[in-house]
């Protein structure tokens, strides 16, 4: 049963892992695959743009009630 054939849009995506040394920049690493997201990566985090230290921003974004 070749189930993958029913989703050609998924299969057609460019980067697939095939094994190798991730640090060498081969096409198998998470880092290499993450390059697919490079064009749309956010250039700066909003809180950094506002001049806040990120750790301070984390503190201000707390929602400390658990469920």
């Amino acid at each position: 049963m070749t189930l993958r054939k029913i989703h050609p849009q998924t299969q057609a995506l460019p980067v697939r892992a095939t094994g190798g040394d991730p640090e060498s920049g081969n096409s198998d690493s998470v880092k290499h695959q993450a390059a697919a997201y490079g064009k749309i990566a956010r250039k700066a985090l909003d809180d950094c743009q506002q001049g806040l230290a990120a750790d301070e921003a984390l503190e201000r974004r707390r929602n400390s009630s658990g469920q």
């Binding site: 299969q11 892992a17 998470v30 993450a34």
Partner: peptide, 24 residues
Amino acid sequence: EEGSLVQCGRHLTWASKLLWLTQL
């Protein structure tokens, strides 16, 4: 299973987020 996160990331949130954070 094969670590193809770009394909996983189309439909699995943990995979797309991992790639996104790695890129950042």
